[in-house]
Design a protein around this nucleic acid. Structure first.
Length: 426
RNA sequence: GGAGGGAUGGCCGAGCGGUCGAAGGCGACGGUCUUGAAAACCGUUAGGUGAAAGCCUCGGGGGUUCGAAUCCCUCUCCCUCCGCCA
């Protein structure tokens, strides 16, 4: 959510910067509604002031036993009270309209973000290692996985449906091993506080994190209980301090959450995304920070580095991209993607998205901090980044570390968790 | 799932439908005293919106009323008991 007051004060700036990610945005529609709202508010507040004064008077008259006069005032106030009711109703309509508009506006992009609606206009920041070379044609991870008996999509589909994964044997150990490694790494090496949150969130939580109202069709919804399945732990961790005033001295707060993530992926399909690339359910360790406004962009660089360290430990080729305005999630002011190399497809896939959402989610969730003892509360900044999602990492490991005999070398850091250094064909 | 009880400021806890945005206590902050500290005493201490006056907020929403923390309806959460269950 954007600051309406700021829009009122700097309309040209908002018009320009919001158009860079939403070409249909018009600041005049917002300001028009806001103007009507403020006019009405003045009228209704004057009447309420009258009512409050009259209430006091009536109370006094009654205590002085001047019932006649009191009765007269009460009669007078009936008309004012009715007028307040009708104005309040009108005001309510305008506020609903204005609010519906505001909650759908994306965050203001940071100056450093490339301005373009074209997703291809991302900017390469840096890369790690060279692309792996093979003296044979690298096979698709489904082939590799099948030969090793790691995955069983047929039975996964029987149990739940298409695009639900089923890991088996060493595949299950590899999956869990990655999770444990990420979990340990971010606890001991990068210092995040581990959180195992609920996997379901209520609509308030979904709203604060900006999953609602825009992405209603992308999340699983349990109507009977009015609860949503976690699409990413960002959504859950964002609500850890909803409606709280944090102590400024405690910032930044660094959390990591491990959850399964559930996404409907309506409309997504395609040959390229066969296998583990895009699924309705996947596992992820998520990094999340609450910071003050001054240090949030610096802290974002930290999140990116923390996520990168995991990829480096796994010894995988990846690149860091700065996304353009048109490709960022609505809540984000600046986003870096980490993309890992997938040999069989000769392309990169996103394995981590690290964003600074500035005060956008904080406003929606009313998450504040007090800078000093007597200072007014201010909105925190929220940051998130995957650290990491496992499924595409498994793809990268299976494909990058495959050998001509069909075996796959387990990355060194995972061996103690997986329990073997080499996955051999059945 | 059933039956009952509750939700008030950072925390605890009062509050006959009428000067209640809310007593009192604790905590925190400032001061007096002290070489310093503690104790004692005095004072300050919710948030939102607004340039301000003001308006709004006693779990959320709705209603009754001239007027609601207080009455009614509804939802959420917490506690106790019963049932079921990993």
């Amino acid at each position: 959510m954007l600051d309406l007051k700021a829009i009122r004060e700097r309309p040209q700036e908002f018009e320009k910067r919001l158009k860079s990610r939403d070409p249909h945005f018009s600041v005049n529609v917002v300001l028009g509604l806001d103007g009507r709202r403020r006019d009405l508010l003045q009228d209704v507040e004057k009447l309420k002031h009258q009512r409050n004064q009259a209430s006091d008077e009536i109370a006094k008259l009654k205590s002085q036993k001047k019932d006649q006069e009191a009765q007269q005032r009460i009669q007078e106030m009936k008309a004012i009270s009715d007028r307040i009711k009708s104005l309040d109703a009108e005001l309510g309509h305008i506020e609903t309209e204005l609010n519906d508009l505001l909650v759908r506006l994306p965050n203001l992009p940071h100056e450093s973000v490339p301005v373009s609606m074209n997703k291809a206009d991302k900017r390469l920041v840096r890369e790690f290692k060279a692309k792996p070379k093979f003296d044979f044609k690298p096979r698709h991870h489904l082939e590799v996985g099948e030969a090793l008996g790691l995955l069983d999509f047929t039975r996964g589909a029987r149990i739940a449906g298409a695009r639900f994964p089923l890991y088996k044997g060493w595949g299950a150990r590899l999956e869990l091993g990655m999770i444990q490694f990420f979990w340990d790494f971010h606890f001991t090496e990068t210092g995040y506080v581990p959180i195992l949150p609920p996997y379901l969130g209520n609509s308030q939580s979904m709203f604060a994190a900006a999953q609602l109202p825009k992405f209603k069709d992308d999340v699983y919804y349990i109507e009977k209980d009015d609860l949503y399945l976690n699409p990413t732990a960002e959504t859950l961790l964002c609500n850890l301090h909803r409606d709280e005033i944090l102590d400024g001295a405690d910032l930044p707060l660094k959390y990591m959450g491990f959850t399964a993530c559930f996404r409907r992926e309506a409309g997504a399909a395609g040959e390229e995304e066969r296998g583990l690339i895009r699924m309705h359910q996947f596992n992820k360790v998520e990094l999340f920070k609450f910071t003050d406004p001054e240090s949030s962009f610096e802290e974002l660089e930290g999140v990116v580095h923390d996520a990168e360290k995991v990829l480096q430990a796994l010894d995988l080729h990846y690149q860091v991209q700065l996304l353009p305005t048109g490709d960022m999630a609505g809540q984000s002011a600046k986003t870096y993607d980490l993309e890992v190399w997938i040999p069989s497809q000769n392309r990169y896939y996103e394995v981590s998205s690290c964003s600074n959402c500035t005060d956008y989610q904080a406003r929606r969730g009313n998450i504040r901090f007090r800078p000093g003892t007597d200072a007014k509360p201010e909105f925190v900044h929220t940051l998130n980044g995957s650290g990491l999602a496992t499924s595409r990492i498994m793809v990268a490991i299976l494909e990058t570390n495959q050998q001509s005999d069909g075996s796959v070398v387990v990355p060194e850091v995972l061996r103690k968790y997986v329990g073997t250094d080499l996955l051999r064909p059945k």
